[in-house]
Structures are given as structure tokens and as C-alpha cells.
Design a protein around this nucleic acid. Sequence first.
DNA 1: GTCGGGTTCCGCCAAG
DNA 2: CGCTTGGCGGAACCCG
Length: 322
Amino acid sequence: MHDDQTSNASRREYASRLNRVLDHIDQHLADPLELTTLAEVAHFSPYHFHRLFAAWMGETLGEYLRRRRLEIAAQRLAANTRLPVLNVALEVGFGSGEAFARAFKERFDCTPTQWRTHARQRWAQELVLSRAQHRNMDQAGRKPHQANNATHADDDGATQSFQEITMNVEVLTLPAARIAYLRHIGPYGPAIGKFWSGTVEPWLNANALIGRITYGVGHDDPAITAPDKCRYDAGVEVDAGFTPNGSANLMSLPGGRYAVVQFTGSSSNISAAWTEIFRDWLPGSGMQIDARPCFERYPAQGAMDPATGLFSCEICVPVKAL
DNA sequence: GTCGGGTTCCGCCAAG
DNA sequence: CGCTTGGCGGAACCCG
């Protein structure tokens, strides 16, 4: 039906414009993001924009802004223990430390400094789980990249150093990448694979973008953000003249220094690799995360083995010196 | 798409 | 001294 076609087209158009706003918010988090200016970014009137945003996101613009600021703050508090709480508050857009402390406790049921100690306790618990997963993967015949560093005899040594498991991490300077992306909002995990095969691959085919380097950009920390609100972008490198259609958007992955890990495995155990980097490698690396997004980089000829579900990619974490 | 009223929440002052 | 909590005026937000 013609109505369905125009309806779907307008829905994709709305998605594109609202996703641009989400990108703009994350890139200007420290600025005073007002309803009227964000409405201009989306090319909607303030009234219409507010209603559309609430219907699309399941939360009002004000609620989203506050949630985003608090989640980024929680991430930075745990990642950089030495940074004063007030600095974190100002960096994510709060005008005062008092307002930040109140909003933080309302959201996380603890004070910002308590969150730091809780985060360390969470990591200690996850360390036990991660070792169990390592044993399972090794038993399944996965090629151990650093098997000599983790002997199976002292698995229950909870007081061991976080450096016990060392990863093959390289710090590289990557060029900026211009990508077109489709966005998925929902839980990380199996749904991402279906998103690629059911939505992204047909879109790549339709736009003659097969055989290029692709990216998976996870904008949220699933340990902090509610699963149904986690954003994931499936992106592909495009030329300067490419103009996206439908719900696709353009985004520039910033260049600069990244911690890069070669990963081979399935979608079910790639999340363990991510937490391994943040928990085991990053604290002792002399580096810290900065505001750029984390992503997975898939080679142009990369293909997932349909039988085993195994694939290869590079896990890239933006870092800067402490 | 505009307007207004009730409410929430921010930012400043003060204290623990 | 840095962080957190409580009180309070006013601005921004939400929604009919």
C-alpha cells in the first residue's frame, strides 16, 4: 500500500533525525543542551520534537539527558579513580557538585565515591566468572593466546593481582573513519547478530557496500545502562560523496590512539573479552579511556563461519595517557 | 503548532 | 579539605 510505504519512509526519516540528536548529545555533553537547540538539530519544532522523542525513546528528553550524563559519569568514576568527583560532574554537564551528588544517589542508590568502591567489588566478582569462562573456552579447544600466564591451580586466589591474565594489547594510532551506520537499540547479545543478518546485510547489498571494512560501535556500558536502552551502531566505511538513505546516518569515528586487541571467537564470548580489557589491562596500562566511542572493527573480507559462529575482529578502545 | 499552570529539578548557601 | 546532605528561590520542564 502506498500509505505503508510513505509511513515506513517517514519512520526511517524520523529515526535518522532522532539518531542525529543522540549523537549530538553525546558529543556536546558538557554544553547546556536545551530543548530548542536540539529541536533545531532534528529539524522539528520544539513541541513536535519533544513528543516524538518521548514516543521513540520511551523517555522524555529531560530524562534522557539526565540518564546519559549520570551513566557517563558513573563510567568515568569507575575508570579513573583519581579524578575528583567535581570534575566528573562538570565534564558531563552538571553545573554544580551538589546537583550531581543528589541526582547520582537518586539513580544509583549510592554516592559517587561509594560507586567507585562498589565498582572494584563488582570487578572482583566478575574476575571469578571470567576465569570460569576461560576454563570453558580452553576445554572447548579454543587456542589459548596466553595460557602460560594463568595456571589452573590457583584459580580461587581472589587476592591475586589483576595483572595475572595478560592480553595481547597493542596501542596504535588509527586514522579517522567516515562511516554510514544503522542503529540498533536493545540488549547486546544474540539480537545483534540477527540485526546484522536481517537488516544490515540487506542494506549493504542494496547500497553496493559489500566487501568493505565494517564496524560495530557500542555506545553504552551494559553493566550500567538498562539492556533495552543500549545503543549499537552497525557501520560501514563510505566515501566522501556517499549520502545515506532511509534510517542510515553518517558518523565520523575519531582517529587517534586506541588499545587494539585481536579477537577470534563467537558473539557469545566477545563480551568477556571487553570486560577483560577494561578490568585486567586498562588499570595497569598507564592509559585511560577518553570520550571517544569504543568499537569492533571487522576486516573487509571477514566472514563469520556459519557452522561454528566464529569470526575475527579488532576490539578498539580509545585511550589517552594518564 | 502555541500557551499557560503545576511540578520538578537545578544551582547557591550552609553545615556535617 | 573534599564530598555529601538539607534548605530554599527560581528557572526549566512536562503536559493538558
